[in-house]
Amino acid sequence: MTSPRATREELERRLATYVGAAAGPPEVGRDPVDGALVRQWCDALDDRNPAYLDEDAARASTHGGLVAPPAMLQAWVLPGISMSRAAADPENRQRELHALFDAQGYTGVVATNCEQAYDRYLRPGDRVTGHTVIESISGEKATGLGSGYFIDTRTTFRDQHGGQVGWMTFRVLKFKPAAPPAAARERAAPPKPRRLRPALGHDNAWWWDGLRCGELLIQRCKSCGQLRHPPRPMCGACQSTQWDTLASGGRGSVYSFVVMHHPQVPGYEYPLVVVLVDLDEGTRLISNLVGVAPGDVHIGMRVEARIEDVDPELALPLFRRETSAGG
């Protein structure tokens, strides 16, 4: 068994044999430069340059006739779906090089740079051929994606007369995929946005705990019996700090309401109906009204609460239209 270092040396020795080699046979365009493909390209990019699209305007222009967008240079020689079968082509040394990397665990590939230069405009009827050379292969580099090698190729494009019409350099990184960092994993599977959490303290945590136990609680002064919501540590009527709770029946009527449209905050569904409910026990409470179209909500409407889990960690007393006579 060879050490990893020996493996790398062996790999790099083999890589060196590819540098300067033709990537494969010349890439011969399947079709001549033609107006239909130009129009598709322009549609896709919303390019309305009349020199590409309008024969009369092009004739009157400095070009003297229709020309193709220069950035289509490589498009004229792409082999289409057969690209996916090129691995089987024994003459394609670029594929062979990639296979060598794959076998060593450098299975990732990402294009990192591309530059093009144009010698002249292509015109309908031109036939283009690309000649690609593997120009260089870097040493092993540590990157954010994982450790790997950069492969630079240079393609020279020639027309039907052998004249150069442009060139392109292209760089890819072949790499051993590293485990994605936590942040990237989160981006890949964003958590479902949740409603804002209540902040919990001495004066309110018990109320939220009550909801988790299925009870809508109302604070009650132990001294004078006054109910109070939102809760507070002392009775404003008799100054007693002794209190207990009453479980509300959850029934009441709408005292006021709003329908929220903007801004829309993640975790909530809009339009969102927020109701101020007069509970039958006598206290008032803010919550949401669900199952009723916003246009059908009205002040005085009878409603009843059902405690529901809006997410695994938050239960809320959501109101619906009252279904039977309240007690």
Partner: peptide
């Protein structure tokens, strides 16, 4: 923050919404 907790989970979180609740009534 405990005060706002009576409203934020229910989405009543903008100045316009607080004023609108009074306005409706």
């Amino acid at each position: 923050l405990i005060h706002w907790s009576w409203y934020m989970p229910f989405g009543l979180m903008t100045p316009a919404s607080w004023v609108a609740m009074f306005a409706q009534r």
